[in-house]
Design a protein around this nucleic acid. Structure first.
Length: 476
RNA sequence: GGCCCCUUCGUCUAGUGGUCCAGGAUAUCUGGUUCUCAUCCAGAAGAUCGCGGGUUCGAAUCCCGCAGGGGUCACCA
């Protein structure tokens, strides 16, 4: 496949949610797979909707996800600038070309007049077409009025890399606005010019644009441009499955998933699998595998629901699969407060025996706190235990004393600990459910922990024995 | 309302005329793994392939119609 130039072209109106990220990811994959370029272009022509800081936020998100771009507003390339508001001259030039060719005209109507045309159409239950009102005499374009495209309506058949063969009749084509009265171009005009000027080969975008493609095709002809490959993504639906995922509807900022401790590997894998598969039953894909296997024609045509439980499973999978040091490197701020002064080596050991029960890193504090701080004795742990609650304190103490005596002799290596724990089972004649539960409760004071021998080994001799003492005192 | 797109277990999906009275994953339930919570393993349950016609020896797969859902018809992208 020839090197593709793809782009992600968000408007700086807020954060990125999974829908936007998926579009960016697929565009990025196509570029990386073909050895081409991935471009970030900021579509900031609607000044009213622009949100301060959004561009930076979007860039941070792409960086955090590892979707590196080759050219962008902060990464100049041969086709810049990469912000539309900095490209106004380009749009003017092409607008003039259209004007000269008689393919653009100034809109003589007031917004109110256009609105009344629209309402007429609505009342008549017909689609609104501005060209039904195309004026005979157009005033000269003074830059204060909207500039409209003089379309040449006709039917189009085209190929979409995802949707396949697509068709639309002439009624889909209208005299849309090229340049607004504020002098800024519309998306419809600007993106066509930019994609051409930036030599974009694949336009990958959401389904909401599919109805406008005939207009874009018509504009391409008027400008003498060769259209790029179009690839239309299905929507990602909300959890209820009744509407497309949107910020208003509670869609989360992808950066928030990272902040909750979801691994990028999992996030990328999950988002890719929402609407794409490689035709096999494989579910887990690394970034490298995605680059290798991704293909637009395997992208689903129907919308997919965003199911957070599936993301949790996938994240747990990646936490378990990646090597300990890699996972450790992501744990930074997720450790409990109590771990603040703990040595790195100790935290790595804790992570190693804990991570198989993590769904995401934000669970770290609740699952590891007892490794770093001596929690107060919690009588409920025994009182609520099915078997331990039936035993009196003397019995419990006797058991703990025996355990203590043996553990005092141990070097606290996992092997020796396992051996001694087994011996204790024989000595006491107790079942693991009783003996191990008691030792576990005494040494952790936590409702859940990793396996007993591992836990003791990591806690170490001094701390483990101290906690046994504390529990013994509490049983008096 | 016009135009366009979509429709397989709760969810994500495999499937492009026969090996599919539909496979995998997840979620749920059950059992097992020396304690807990997980993991892991085994198993169960779960889809009349949106509905109705047709073509064919044979259809989830092809054709037609219908229904439902979504998108669009902005000086938003």
């Amino acid at each position: 496949m020839k090197p593709a130039r793809t782009r992600f072209a968000p408007s700086p109106t807020g954060f990125l949610h999974v829908g936007g990220v998926r579009t960016a990811l697929f565009a990025w994959l196509v570029a990386r797979q073909t050895g081409g370029q991935f471009i970030l272009r900021i579509e900031d022509t609607d000044r009213a909707r622009e949100v301060k800081g959004a561009e930076t936020h979007i860039i941070d998100s792409l960086r955090a996800l590892g979707l590196d771009y080759d050219e962008g507003p902060d990464l100049p390339g041969d086709y810049g600038p990469y912000r539309q508001t900095e490209r106004l001259d380009t749009y003017k030039t092409w607008a003039q070309t259209l004007l000269d060719a008689g393919r653009a005209y100034a809109d003589p109507y007031s917004p109110e007049e256009v609105q009344s045309f629209r309402e007429q159409a609505q009342k008549a239950k017909k689609p609104f077409l501005y060209r039904d009102h195309r004026p005979e005499q157009q005033p000269a374009w003074d830059g204060k009025r909207p500039l409209r495209f003089k379309s040449e309506p006709k039917a189009y058949d085209w190929q979409d890399a995802v949707m396949g063969k697509l068709h639309a009749g002439a009624e889909a084509i209208d005299d849309f606005i090229l340049i607004k009265s504020d002098g800024f171009p519309t998306y419809n005009f600007a993106h066509v010019v930019d994609d051409h000027e930036m030599a974009i080969t694949h336009v990958i975008r959401g389904q909401e644009f599919i109805a406008s493609v005939p207009n874009y095709l018509n504009l391409h002809e008027a400008l003498g441009f060769t259209p790029p490959v179009f690839a239309t993504m299905p929507h990602i639906l909300n959890e209820q499955g009744n509407k497309k995922l949107s910020k208003r509807d509670g869609a989360k900022d992808v950066l928030d998933y990272l902040k909750d401790g979801y691994l990028v590997e999992a996030l990328i894998n999950f988002i890719a699998s929402l609407g794409w598969n490689d035709g096999t039953t494989q579910e887990i894909f690394s970034r490298e595998e995605l680059i290798e296997r991704f293909s637009l024609d395997h992208v689903q045509r129907s919308g997919a629901r965003f199911d957070e439980r599936r993301l949790e499973w996938m994240d747990g999978h990646w936490i378990r699969t990646l090597d300990n040091d890699t996972v450790y490197s992501r744990c930074g701020g997720f450790w409990p407060e109590s771990a603040k002064d703990a040595p790195e080596d100790y935290k790595k050991q804790v992570l190693d025996i804990t991570r198989e029960r993590l769904k995401y890193l934000a669970e770290l504090p609740q699952q590891t706190d007892f490794f770093f701080v001596d929690l107060p004795v919690d009588p409920k742990l025994i009182d609520n235990h099915k078997q331990l609650k039936k035993m009196d304190n003397q019995e419990l103490k006797a058991m703990l004393e025996q355990a203590k005596a043996s553990l005092e002799q141990s070097d606290f290596s996992p092997i020796d600990l396992s051996k001694r724990l087994n011996q204790l089972l024989e000595q006491t004649g107790q079942k693991p459910a009783v003996l191990f539960s008691l030792i576990r409760i005494a040494t952790t004071q936590a409702p859940a922990s990793p396996g007993l021998a591992d836990t003791l080994a990591v806690l170490g001799k001094e701390r483990s024995l101290k906690r046994l003492h504390t529990q013994l005192d509490a049983l008096k």
